[in-house]
Design a protein around this nucleic acid. Structure first.
Lengths: 94, 94
DNA sequence: TCTGTATTTAGATATTTTTCTAAATATTAT
DNA sequence: ATAATATTTAGAAAAATATCTAAATACAGA
């Protein structure tokens, strides 16, 4: 909730890579973890940060927890950046 | 240079506010500092991080150092995010 | 119910980041 | 050259973040 969390979540390379992995489709926590040289606990920590920022959401199924990308928040961040790029140049008014 | 630096630079609320201030036009380090309840040294630290990420550039003039927004890097970050939003949905091919 | 697998939580440690104070540098003006 | 102002740099302290190990939880299958 809030930009602060979104940007913080995006600021870590591991978390960005997780998002890229999820671009191709949902993955379980374990599958995500197998892409990194880190303990499952650490991956869980990162997933939780992404979840709190609503960049991903989870889906419990059987013995697994699947994670999926939530693109709507990505959009919000882009909007903030777009405004920054926006009407900053004195020359091009309005 | 590189996404890591860009995202890290954007992850701090003080630095984001500095960028927003610069949207309206260039400001000296002192003018930027006066918007925050922090020492000049701390502001200088943040400006340096933004500078290294090439989100701003400086312009020395007289006794002052003026800072300006560099929107081209903002664009790069947006591009990364756009790709994340991109072809992630199984349904909408291509 | 017991065992095994997937994942998270708790607590500790290590690393990184943010902030401060004090000193250094640079530039202007007298 | 000296004094004043603007800003940065250095070094230390405080705060936040990332990582690990070990234990806890949740669920599935025998």
């Amino acid at each position: 909730m809030g930009f602060a969390e979104n940007f913080k979540a995006l600021s870590d390379p591991v978390r960005r890579e997780i998002l890229v992995l999820l671009k191709k489709g949902r993955l379980s926590a374990g599958e995500i973890g197998s892409h990194f040289d880190m303990t499952g606990a650490t991956i869980s920590y990162h997933l939780n940060i992404l979840k709190k920022a609503e960049l991903i959401f989870e889906n419990r199924e059987k013995n697994y927890i699947y994670y999926e990308l939530n693109t709507s928040v990505v959009e919000e961040v882009m909007l903030w950046l777009a405004q920054l790029k926006g009407e900053n140049n004195d020359a091009e008014k309005e």
